[in-house]
Amino acid sequence: MTSPLDLSTATDQEVVLQAREGHEAAYRELIRRYQRPVFSLIYRMVRDRELSEDLAQETFVKVLNAIDRYRPEFKFSSWVFKIANNAAIDHLRKKELDTLSLEGGPDAVTPERIEATALQIGDSGESPLDELEARELGLAIERAIGQLRPEYQTCIILRHVEGRPYDEIAEILGLPLGTVKTYIHRARAELRDMLDPLRETMQ
C-alpha cells in the first residue's frame, strides 16, 4: 500500500503514479490541472465552445485511459498538449478549412452560430478608458490569432498563453527546435501587421 500523497503539491509524475495505482483522486487532479489550458488551446483553434468541450473531453479520456502507456521520461504536459493539438488539427482537417473566420468559429455558417462561437473576452478590472482599450486590444489579438495558420496558432498559444519553453513546444508538435522558433517569429510578425491599425490609437 502506498502512502497518501498531497496531490495539490505533487509533481505531475507523482500524480500519474498515483493514478496508475487506481486512485481516482489522482485522475481528478490531472483533469483540474490541465482542463483550462487544454480547453483554451482547443477553443482558440476551433472557436466553438461546444465542440471545444467535446474535443477537450476526448483528449482527457484518451490521455487518462492510456495512462499506463505514459512514459515518465517525457513531460506529462507535453503529452496532454500533443493529444489536444492533434484533436483540434484533426477536426480542422476533417472540415477541410484552411482559413479561420474572423468573428466566429470555423464551423459557424449562420449569423447566430457566428455570434455563439465568437470568443468572449473577459473583464480586466482597469479604468473605463484603459478597460476599453484593453478590451479592444484583446479582441484584436484574438481575431488576429484566429487568422493564423493552425501550427502558428498552437505555437503562439503554447508560448504566450501557457508559457511553455521552445523545446517543449518542439516536443509537442514533433518539430525541430529551429522550426518552432521560426514559426513563432513569423506568427509574431503576422500578428504585428494585423495589429497595425490599433497602433496609432494606442501610442
Binding site: F39, S40, Q120, S124, R188
Partner: peptide, 16 residues
C-alpha cells in the same frame, strides 16, 4: 513590440 507583447499578455485561459 510592446503593443504586441501587451496584447499577447492579455490572452487569458478559457474554462470549460
Amino acid at each position: 513590440d510592446p503593443i504586441l507583447d501587451r496584447a499577447l499578455a492579455s490572452l487569458a485561459h478559457f474554462s470549460p
